[in-house]
Nucleic acid binder design. Structure first.
Length: 106
DNA sequence: CGTGTGACACGTA
DNA sequence: TTACGTGCCACAC
């Protein structure tokens, strides 16, 4: 059963375009509720249905245990990386995505 | 109902 | 740059 909050999180993650990423805190801030822990918990539970690798820490490091899988996606998606080997780090300054709002923004 | 833990973030050393 | 401590919220025990 997907809670309303989980549904919002998954919706935002699914909206992240290839080559772009968002931090847990960014998503929580975009939704305006909960916190980075809640976002992470949702992805850990239902992340299997979304591009969880596009959701990473504020440092640019992917989820622990899946850093290699995420790395493969980044190389495939063309995500700007600062480090191609562990500790895998995404170039947040360039890859950070403002949110779905930027798609229809004037 | 108290304690521990976690796919986090931030400040400071 | 890494390491440590603290605040945050939700959940398992």
């Amino acid at each position: 059963m997907l809670t309303d909050y989980a549904d919002r999180v998954l919706d935002v993650v699914d909206a992240i375009p290839a080559g772009r990423v968002m931090s847990y805190g960014d998503i929580a801030e975009y939704l305006g509720e909960g916190g980075p822990r809640q976002v992470g918990r949702v992805l850990a539970a239902y992340g299997g249905s979304v591009a969880w690798w596009r959701v990473i820490h504020a440092d640019g490091t992917p989820a622990p245990g899946h850093d290699l899988a995420a790395l493969a996606r980044y190389q495939e998606e063309g995500t700007p990386l600062r480090s191609s080997v562990p500790p895998v780090r995404v170039h947040m300054r360039e890859a950070r995505w403002p949110g779905p709002d930027s798609e229809g923004a004037s």
